[in-house]
């Protein structure tokens, strides 16, 4: 047991938690943007999977990381566009649209991989490129913090930047305001002349773009190849992180970090003597507990607010 505690309080643990947070964080931010516009994007898992594949293919065939990134990004946008077209234009249920995209992704990625590489599981026969890791000059030299914060993948830093950008975009920018007003009350927004459908299109596309980086981090950062079903439910965990994030980018970041830690914990807890099946459950149990806790807290606050209001109304 002390060994486990030591590994949990080690620099590596925090470093690894940050790394495991990255894909979830990207997707959770994507889910956040869509959610604030009143759209539940359950297709994140599929977007991540597709982008993970096309990023690898693009970089392998062009020999350029930038082209690879572009391929992954365009794929994410394209799938989001399909989802937007069917859910907004054709009025399909957004949940079903997402389920459909995820279905297409699980089989479609294997189909594409097989057609191109003749391999149904991994893309190791291609030499694809990887986003570089970055040493941050000054921070690197700080004793403990340097080891935790420096030397991460470019995309990990980008995900942190994305938190700030998404926060600023949603809370401070004009399009962000539109997204929020559409999400809060579409009819009211329409009545003041906001084009609801167009705003939702934009939000979904942005959501797809963010999720695509999450996918590319898996195949071009964390690993150096595409592997069948490599998202392994991270798109769904991202939905949970967003639900816990209280609708803000900062909250979503912290919620994603909690999952990163839960996953890192499920790595560290291995070999403690617990049956491995219980250790494997940790991230998912953490998610449900988080949801319950969050929902309970929110309910309490609501009750208190209501009580407060009633008291106010009661007093002369």
């Amino acid at each position: 047991m002390p060994e486990v505690l030591r590994s949990i309080f080690s620099v590596d643990f925090v470093y690894s938690a940050l790394r495991l947070t990255t894909p979830v964080l990207f997707a959770a931010l994507g889910s956040l943007v869509a959610d604030r516009a009143g759209v539940t994007n359950i297709g994140l898992e599929g977007i991540m999977l597709f982008s993970a594949l096309t990023g690898v293919l693009g970089s392998a065939y062009s020999g350029s990381l930038f082209v690879g990134m572009l391929c992954g990004l365009v794929t994410g946008l394209f799938i989001a566009l399909i989802m937007a077209y069917f859910s907004l234009q054709m009025k399909a249920d957004i949940i079903l649209t997402g389920v459909a995209m995820n279905l297409v992704a699980t089989g479609g990625t294997v189909f594409i991989l097989y057609s191109i590489c003749g391999d149904k599981s991994v893309s190791t026969s291609l030499s694809s490129l990887v986003f570089p890791t970055i040493e941050i000059p000054l921070i690197r030299d700080i004793p403990v913090l340097g080891d935790i914060l420096s030397g991460h993948n470019l995309l990990t830093y980008l995900s942190l930047v994305a938190v700030v950008v998404v926060w600023f975009f949603l809370e401070k920018s004009k399009p962000g305001l539109r997204i929020r007003s559409v999400g809060e009350n579409a009819h009211a927004a329409e009545s003041v002349g906001i084009h609801v459908r167009r705003v939702r299109y934009g939000a979904l596309l942005l959501s797809g773009a963010l999720a695509s980086f999450g996918g590319m981090f898996l195949s071009m950062g964390m690993l150096t190849y595409f592997s069948k079903n490599m998202t392994a439910g991270r798109g769904y965990i991202a939905l949970a992180a967003q639900a816990l994030g209280n609708g803000s980018a900062i909250g979503t970041f912290f919620a994603s970090l909690v999952f990163g830690c839960a996953e890192a914990l499920s790595v560290s807890l291995q070999g403690v003597g617990l049956p491995p099946q219980f250790v494997q459950m940790v991230p998912y149990v953490a998610t449900i507990l988080g949801l319950v806790l969050y929902a309970a807290l929110r309910k309490n606050t609501k009750k208190r607010v209501r009580k407060h209001k009633r008291r106010k109304r009661g007093s002369p």
Binding site: S7, D12, S16, R19, L20, P23, L218, M222, L223, S227, K228, N229, M230, A232, E263, A264, V267, S268, Q270, G271, P276, Q277, V279, Q280
Partner: peptide, 19 residues
């Protein structure tokens, strides 16, 4: 000794091995 829980999640395999 550690176990992933499936045969797909290469990311987790790598993370466990690193640890």
């Amino acid at each position: 000794t550690a176990y992933i829980g499936n045969f797909d999640d290469a990311v987790k395999a790598k993370e466990i091995t690193l640890s």
